[in-house]
Amino acid sequence: MRDLLAAFARAFDLLASGDPALYTIMARTLVVSGAATLLALLAGVPIGYLLARRRFAGHTLLLGLVNTGMGLPPVVVGLFVWLVLARSGPLGDLDLIYTRRAMVLAQFIIALPLVVGFTVTSLRALPERLPDLLRTLGARRWRMLWLLAREARLGLLAAVMAGFGAVVSEVGASMTVGGNLERSTRVLTTAIVTETGRGDVPLALALGLILLVLAFAVNLVLTWAQTRGSR
C-alpha cells in the first residue's frame, strides 16, 4: 500500500520536475505509436472499405484473418519482425533492427487488423444504399469515400483509439525489435519492464500511471472530436 501511494507521489514529482529523460521517453512513445496508428489508418481504412462494400474471391478468408489478427499477440509480431529485420534476415541490409522504424513497423502490423476490423463494422452500420445515393447526388470516388468516412466517423475514431490503445500499451514487440535502448528506443512500457527488473517498483508504477495519463489525454482529444462532430 505504501508503494502504491509512493508511486502516485513519484509520478506527480516526475511530471512536475520536467525530468528531460522522462519527457523524451513520453515524446518517443507518442511519436512511435502515433506514426504506427497513422500508417495503420492510411492502409486500414481503404482495406476496410473494400471488405465492407465489395465482394471478391477470398473475401470471407480475408475477413476471418482480420478478425483473428485483432487479437495478434504483440510478442509474436515482434519475433516475426525481428527475424525479417535482423542482420541475418531477408531485410537485414536495411539495418533497421533496434531502431524506432522497426518499432513502428511492428506496431503497424499490430494496429492494422484492429483498424480494418473497426472500419468494416462502422461502414456496415451505414445504410446499405448510402453509396448509391451519394453517387446519384454526383459524388465521385474520393469525394464519396470522404463523405462515407464522415458518416462513419464514430466508428473510425473508435478504430483509431483501439489501434493506438493497443500499440501504446504493448511491450513484447517494442522490446524485441526496439531493444529498449536507453538513448534511442526505450518507450514507456519497456521502461516499466526495466525499472521492475531493477527492483524500483515505485518508479515502474509511476511510469505506468504516466502511460495511463498519456493514453487518457489522447483518447480525450479523440472523444472530444467524436462528440463534437456528431452534434
Partner: peptide, 17 residues
Amino acid sequence: DATGQGMGATLLVADQR
C-alpha cells in the same frame, strides 16, 4: 547505449549493433 534487459538479450543487441 543500454538495453535495460538481461544478458542474453543484451548479447543479441550488441551482436546486431
